[in-house]
Design a protein around this nucleic acid. Structure first.
Lengths: 193, 193
DNA sequence: CTCAAGGGAGAACGTTCGTTCTCCACTCTG
DNA sequence: CAGAGTGGAGAACGAACGTTCTCCCTTGAG
């Protein structure tokens, strides 16, 4: 208890790991690089995360929670159900514009190790399903047909990878416009704006 | 000339490399595994492709060409411009249903090494741009507004990654339905069907 | 049959990386 | 002050991998 708080250290390590893993890829980053970036000893690092795989899983799990939290927080700042639905795409645009944006951590990790690590496939699937559920909630709240959920999910997913590869945040705008199109064409939205 | 045709060998090696790289990821596959699968000696392998990077580039380049060829061939079997546009999504469904489907080789490679290898980023970007152009041609031929190109591209892209991660070909169906929606809502399509 | 050239198999080399181990400085207790 | 225990720095170890090298067998020419 006189020692540094273990949770603080975990956070420190996860911060370093997240920045490196996301920025360079899972296999491109060695435990040594994480150790240096986190400023802890190798001994400590392995005490906190017994293996690289554990660290990767913790990274993905925390990133999933944080990503969805931030999205939800942004969306919550909007009033009408219709606006909340479209806010998802505004948030994406903001995300795509961040320095160092490199696509979806889960898609990237899946592409890199999904064939080889069931844990990563699992994490990616869970992340996408959670996003899908969240979207479904927004769609229902807006009184839109359930079918819209899948449509918006495809648009968002497409925008993420297109933005990553092209290096431009514009796909979010196009996805938003398309979403508006799908929305205003649907019965419940008539009358809005 | 008495020796085996060099082109045949290249094809043999590329076939093996494609199957392994696509199925397991770039870094998960060693040159030795490719050598065994291709049934050539290491000496030969390095004679044909001086480095792994060269082999990866050749793999991506051939896959790009082949992928677009197959898509175009499929689409060409359809009559009306509108049908041709929708056929893209049918082809995707067929692709997603293939044994061993694991998403887009370019997105996967980009996620794995894009941060570290400009060549791969370049290849991914070129592939996506080529697909976009192809789509633009179909859209123009159907007399649809140019804006539809981006919309369909987002849907296709989203369907690819969603299918990869979920392991189901269904996203192609949803994307197709959404595309139909966007089509029939646009002016030029009235009267179809 | 002899010998030189070419190619195949895989040993070898140098590096990187995940993980563990060693050594030493510091600190807290008595 | 003496001594035990904790933690940090980084050396060490074993495996994997990209790439090169060696050795031997085959083959074709004379």
């Amino acid at each position: 208890m006189a020692t540094v708080d273990i949770e603080t250290l975990r956070t420190q390590v996860l911060d370093a790991a997240e920045s490196l893993f996301y920025g360079q890829g899972l296999q491109a980053v060695g435990m040594d690089a994480i150790r240096s970036a986190a400023g802890v000893s190798l001994k400590r690092l392995y005490q906190l995360f017994p293996s690289k795989e554990d660290l990767v899983e913790a990274y993905l799990s925390r990133r999933d929670a944080r990503w969805r939290e931030e999205l939800a927080r942004y969306v919550d700042g909007h009033g009408s159900p219709r606006e909340r639905l479209l806010a998802v795409f505004d948030w994406l645009h903001q995300w795509f514009s961040e320095e160092g944006f490199r696509g979806c951590a889960f898609i990237n990790s899946f592409g890199e190790l999904g064939a080889v690590s069931p844990g990563i496939t699992q994490a990616a699937r869970a992340h996408k399903e959670a996003f899908h559920s969240y979207l479904a909630g927004l769609v229902a709240a807006a009184g839109e047909p359930a079918r819209l959920t899948e449509q918006l999910a495809l648009l968002a997913e497409g925008a993420i990878t297109t933005a990553a590869i092209s290096g431009s945040p514009e796909p979010a705008r196009h996805a938003r416009a398309t979403a508006e199109h799908l929305l205003s064409a649907s019965p419940a939205a008539t009358g809005a704006r």
